[in-house]
Every structure is written in C-alpha cells, then in structure tokens.
C-alpha cells in the first residue's frame, strides 16, 4: 500500500517537473531569441518566478524599470511603468486585450499554445526568428 502511494507521488512529481522544464525551455528559447541576450532581466509574478528561477538565462528583478521584459498572467494590477514594457503573457485574454503584450504562452484544452502579435512586436522593434513566425496570428 505504502509502496503504491510512493510510486504515485513520484510519478506525479516527475510529470509536474517535466511540464515545468518544458515550459522553462520554451521561455528560454522564445525570449533569448527575441531579446538576444545571455542574461535577460525579467520581471515576473509569483507563478512564473518559480519556473524561471531554475535557469541562469534569466535575471529576475524586483521592479519593472530594471527589466527588459515583463512576464505575468494578469496585467491589470501592474503599474504604469510596467505596462509600458514589452509584455509576455501567460493568459490569452490578457494578451488579447493589452496592446503592449507581444506574445503569450498558455494552455487550451490541455494543449500548450504559443502566439504573437505582429503590431506590438514592431512597436518594440522586436524581431522573431523564422522558426517562430508561424505562431503570429494577429
């Protein structure tokens, strides 16, 4: 019985970890290819912080003015300074309704979704690598 519980826990853990590391890799790939930097200064909310902490490609900063990019779920609570920064969302609606949001990574029907906004990218003079061009929908 105990064995079974331990096994289930282990499995669950590894699944969670795998998802996290998958997400982290995606962030690394997407953000480094857009911002062309070895260590990207990023302002995050608590959800995303946990994931990004595990990588040395990101430098997590306390305030938005120090950051190059802001990576959060909801933008409504952000200060005006933050809202001026290039925003990367983890929520589709925030991404859709916030003009400064250039991209988003979120889950739909259990499937991960990546999307970009052409207008916002151009506004911040950000260019996408060719591999990501196909994720530009609007």
């Amino acid at each position: 019985m105990i064995k079974k519980i331990i096994l289930t826990l282990l499995l669950l853990f590894s699944v969670l970890n795998a998802n996290d590391s998958l997400t982290l890799k995606l962030y690394e790939k997407v953000l480094t290819s857009i911002f062309h930097s070895q260590s990207i200064k990023v302002f995050v909310d608590s959800d995303t912080r946990e994931i990004l902490q595990q990588s040395n490609r990101f430098e997590i900063v306390d305030t938005c003015d120090k950051s190059v990019v802001v990576l959060v779920g909801k933008f409504s609570k952000l200060s005006e300074i933050c809202k001026d920064k290039p925003l990367f969302s983890t929520d589709y609606r925030s991404f859709k309704h916030t003009p400064n949001s250039f991209g988003a990574y979120y889950w739909r029907k259990g499937r991960p979704q990546l999307t970009f906004k052409r207008r916002t990218l151009e506004k911040y003079h950000l260019s996408l690598p060719l591999a990501l061009e196909k994720y530009v929908y609007e």
């Binding site: 589709y92 499937r111 979704q113 990546l114 929908y137």
Partner: peptide
C-alpha cells in the same frame, strides 16, 4: 472561464 476560448481564437492542437 479561464479555459474558455474566444470565438475565432486560434488553436494549435497536438
């Protein structure tokens, strides 16, 4: 509501 998609929202299925 969080997982509710918008009308004509793009979707990449696996």
């Amino acid at each position: 509501a969080a997982d509710k998609s918008d009308f004509l929202e793009s979707y990449v299925p696996l």
